[in-house]
Amino acid sequence: MRIKLKITFDELELPLNYNSVIQGFIYNNISDKRFRDFLHNKGFKYEKRNFKLFTFSRLEGIFKINKKNNRISFTSPIYLTISSSVDEFTNDFGNTILNEENLYLGKNKIRVESIQTNNKKIKSNNIKIKMLSPVTTYSTVDLRGHKRTIYHSPGEELFTKLIYENLQKKYKLIYGEEIEDDKFDIIPKKTKSVLTKYKDFIIKGWLGELELKGDEKLLQIAYDVGLGSKNPQGYGNFEVI
Rank of each mutant, 00 (worst) to 15 (best):
M1L: 15
M1H: 06
K6C: 06
I7G: 03
T8S: 15
F9T: 11
L14F: 06
P15A: 07
P15E: 02
S20Y: 11
V21M: 12
Q23C: 04
G24P: 01
Y27T: 04
F35C: 01
R36Y: 08
D37M: 05
K42D: 11
R49F: 15
R49H: 12
F51K: 01
F51T: 02
K52V: 08
L53P: 05
S57L: 13
L59A: 08
F63T: 00
K68C: 02
R71A: 09
R71I: 01
S73G: 09
S73F: 14
S73M: 12
F74H: 02
T75W: 13
S76H: 09
S76Y: 08
P77Y: 10
I78V: 15
Y79Q: 01
L80S: 05
T81S: 15
S85C: 12
E88H: 08
E88A: 11
D92R: 01
G94F: 08
N95Q: 01
L98S: 06
N99W: 02
E100L: 08
N102S: 05
N102A: 11
N108D: 10
I110S: 03
E113R: 14
I115Q: 08
I115Y: 07
Q116C: 03
K120H: 06
K121S: 04
K123C: 07
S124G: 06
S124R: 10
I129G: 01
K130G: 00
K130F: 06
S133F: 05
P134D: 09
V135H: 06
V141W: 00
D142M: 12
R144C: 00
G145A: 00
H146K: 10
K147R: 07
K147I: 00
R148Q: 07
T149F: 01
T149D: 03
S153C: 02
S153N: 12
S153H: 08
G155L: 00
T160C: 08
K161W: 04
L162A: 00
E165H: 04
L167V: 00
K170L: 02
Y171E: 01
K172W: 07
K172P: 02
E178V: 09
E178K: 14
D182T: 12
D182E: 13
D182V: 11
K183D: 15
F184N: 03
F184Q: 04
F184P: 03
D185I: 02
P188W: 04
P188R: 10
K189V: 11
K190H: 14
K190T: 10
K190S: 07
T191C: 08
T191G: 10
K192L: 15
S193L: 11
V194I: 12
T196Q: 15
T196C: 05
I203Q: 04
I203G: 02
K204E: 14
W206T: 11
G208E: 01
K213I: 09
K213L: 11
L218W: 04
L218T: 01
I221F: 07
A222R: 08
G226S: 14
G226Q: 14
G228Q: 07
N231P: 15
G234W: 09
Y235W: 09
N237P: 04
V240Y: 12
I241T: 12
I241R: 10
